[in-house]
């Protein structure tokens, strides 16, 4: 494991936001049981951007569901230390019958935020994701990238400081994806979020992550961690990002080849 040498916070040990300790998750029982995650330990510091990469079957999505509290581990513990956790998916998953503004209001309605305050927050969040003036549109009137930005605004409306992202850029075209990388990086900094990003895309992971955690498949385990020291803002097409990504990709390919049988 590589120890972190990050100096953003002038050496002070920062608080842990997410502590995943020896977690296992088994689906089903008996001979047909499937071990999705086996003894995985990951700890994420507050305000850190961690990217998790792995091939299919590495339990990435299961891991995020565990952190979000949507499922419970079979073994080990997941501790989010009282942080509020929000989640984004590959599909924006907006409610098609609601306007953009009403979609962003949903988490606030769950939390019982009064109506006037909700309207203010919607305007502020739309401004943050640069979609001011789109509150009255419906999701189907927006492009895929815009829908993901609405989904981001909706996630932030939960007042969460830990953001889990399950391949949120996977379904977007390259140009939109690059711009959204810039956007998520900006918002992560402005809001001091802690982000756990799951992706298939190694370059994306290196572009965005303070750390890249490489996972094995079937079952999912942590193989190796890489610290990305490249200064921000980064460019996905810069030579240093590319060479770092190549290094991790080689490691990932070796892991995938192991399953050739």
């Amino acid at each position: 494991m590589t120890t972190t040498t990050e100096t953003l916070d002038t050496g002070t040990e920062r608080a842990r936001a997410v502590e995943i300790d020896q977690v296992s998750k088994v689906f089903g029982e008996g001979p047909g049981a499937l071990t999705a995650i086996d003894g995985m330990s990951v700890s994420v510091r507050a305000h850190e951007f961690v990217a998790l990469v792995g091939a299919s079957g590495c339990g990435k999505s299961t891991l995020l569901s565990l952190v979000a509290g949507l499922t419970h581990p079979t073994g080990g513990t997941v501790d989010v230390g009282g942080h509020r956790v929000a989640m984004m998916f590959q599909e924006a998953s907006l409610f098609p019958w609601l306007t953009v503004g009403a979609n962003i209001e949903i988490p606030m309605r769950v939390n019982g935020v009064p109506k006037a305050r909700r309207k203010e927050r919607v305007a502020e969040l739309l401004d943050l994701v640069r979609l001011s003036g789109f509150a009255r549109k419906r999701p189907h009137q927006l492009s895929g990238g815009m829908r993901q930005r609405v989904a981001l605004a909706r996630a932030l409306a939960q007042d969460a400081d830990v953001l889990l992202m399950d391949e949120p850029f996977g379904a977007l075209d390259a140009m939109t994806r690059d711009i959204l990388h810039d956007e998520i990086e900006r918002i992560w900094r402005e809001r001091s979020l802690t982000v756990m990003l799951v992706t298939h895309n190694v370059r994306e992971a290196v572009r965005l992550g303070d750390r890249v955690i490489l996972l094995s498949s079937r079952p999912g385990r942590v193989i190796e961690e890489f610290t990305v020291e490249e200064e921000r803002p980064r460019r996905i097409d810069s030579a240093r990002i590319a060479s770092r990504a190549a290094e991790i990709t080689d490691r990932l390919r070796a892991e995938v080849s192991r399953h050739a049988g």
């Binding site: 998916f89 309605r109 939960q158």
Partner: peptide, 20 residues
């Protein structure tokens, strides 16, 4: 997927029905 998003936002009980 919408049900999953709803759960992630903490929709449950009556609100799960009325809002989703």
């Amino acid at each position: 997927q919408l049900l999953r998003a709803g759960r992630a936002m903490g929709l449950r009980g009556v609100q799960r029905y009325t809002l989703l």
